[in-house]
Design a binder for these strands. Structure first.
Length: 257
DNA sequence: ATGTCGTATCGCATACGA
C-alpha cells in the first residue's frame, strides 16, 4: 500500500500535473493540501475518471484538504481537528482506507512571527498533538500525513540565513514536531533515509528549485504496528521540475499492508 | 525589501497569503 502526501497549491490550476503524477506513481492513497477550492469546485468527477474515490473539505481561496483512494471510497471519520469549534479553516480530514486510518493535515504556516499567525500555528499544532495522542492510544493502524509546515532539524533545510526568523524553523515549532515523535510515531522518510538530505518544498522565488534550496516540510508519521510494515519511502522530486508545478513535491511511503 | 506564484476583487492592477 503506497500512501503519499502532496501539497498541490490549487487543485484545479494544477489538475494536469496531479493527473500525470497519479498515472505515473499509482499511489493507493493520496493526502492533498492547499486545494484552494470550495467543496463545489473540487474536481471529483475527473478524479473518479482517473480511478480515485475521494473525501474532501474545501474552503474558498485558501487551505482545503482531501484524501484520495485508488479503486475505493475513503470512509470519512472526521473533517476537522478537535479542540476549537470556532476554527473554520479547512486543515484536517481523516478517513479509513483499507483498514488504515489516514489523517491528512495542513498545519498553519505561522508567518509572520511573532504575531497572531504564529500564535495560531502553535495553538493548532498543540491540538494536533492532543488528537495524535488519542489516536495513538486506540492502537489502530494510523498514518498522520501532510504538510506540517515545520522543518524538523537544521539538516532539513539548505544552508542559509534567510529563514532565520521564519516560523518554519523556530525552536518552538521544532519542539512541537519533536513532541509528536516522543509519543512514538515514526517519521517514514527519516526511518528509511537516516543520513540523506531530503527536501519536499522549494519556494518559487529566487531560483530556489534550480539551486536545490529546499526544505523538508511534508511528513508521513506511522503508528507502532504500521512502522514495522514500512517497506520504502521517498520524494518524487521530478514532479517539482514539471511546467506549472506546485512548490511542493509528493512524499510517499510503501507499507506491507 | 526583495523575489514568485495563486486567488479575489467595485479588475486590465493591487492586496494578501504562502
Amino acid at each position: 500500500m503506497k500512501i503519499a502526501t502532496f501539497n498541490i497549491n490549487g487543485i484545479n490550476r494544477r489538475l494536469p500535473n496531479l493527473m500525470a503524477w497519479l498515472a505515473d506513481a499509482a499511489p493507493d492513497v493520496v493526502c492533498l493540501q492547499e486545494l484552494k477550492a470550495t467543496d463545489r469546485q473540487f474536481p471529483a468527477t475527473a478524479l473518479a475518471d482517473a480511478g480515485y474515490g475521494a473525501v474532501w473539505r474545501g474552503e474558498s481561496s485558501w487551505n482545503g484538504v482531501a484524501i484520495l483512494a485508488r479503486g475505493m471510497e475513503p470512509i470519512l471519520t472526521r473533517d476537522e481537528l478537535p479542540g476549537n469549534p470556532d476554527d473554520k479553516q479547512a486543515r484536517y480530514i481523516e478517513a479509513a482506507v483499507n483498514g488504515v486510518l489516514i489523517a491528512c493535515l495542513y498545519a498553519p504556516n505561522g508567518n509572520p512571527r511573532p504575531g497572531p499567525k504564529f500564535d495560531y500555528k502553535m495553538a493548532w499544532t498543540e491540538r494536533l498533538i492532543a488528537h495524535a495522542a488519542e489516536l495513538w492510544a486506540t492502537d489502530l493502524p494510523v498514518a498522520l500525513v501532510g504538510d506540517y509546515n515545520i522543518v524538523p532539524e537544521p539538516r532539513d533545510i539548505y544552508e542559509t540565513t534567510s529563514y532565520r526568523d521564519n516560523a518554519l524553523v523556530q525552536p518552538e515549532s521544532r519542539a512541537l514536531f519533536a513532541r509528536l515523535l516522543v509519543q512514538g510515531w515514526t517519521d517514514a522518510i527519516r526511518a528509511k533515509h537516516p543520513d540523506e538530505t531530503i527536501y519536499t518544498f522549494w519556494d518559487y522565488m529566487r531560483n530556489r528549485w534550480p539551486r536545490n534550496a529546499g526544505l523538508r516540510l511534508d511528513h508521513l508519521l506511522l503508528s507502532h504496528d504500521l512502522a514495522r510494515k514500512l517497506k520504502a519511502s521517498g520524494v518524487d522530486r521530478d514532479v517539482r521540475a514539471a511546467p506549472g508545478a506546485s512548490d511542493h513535491a509528493p512524499a510517499w511511503m510503501e507499507l506491507r499492508v
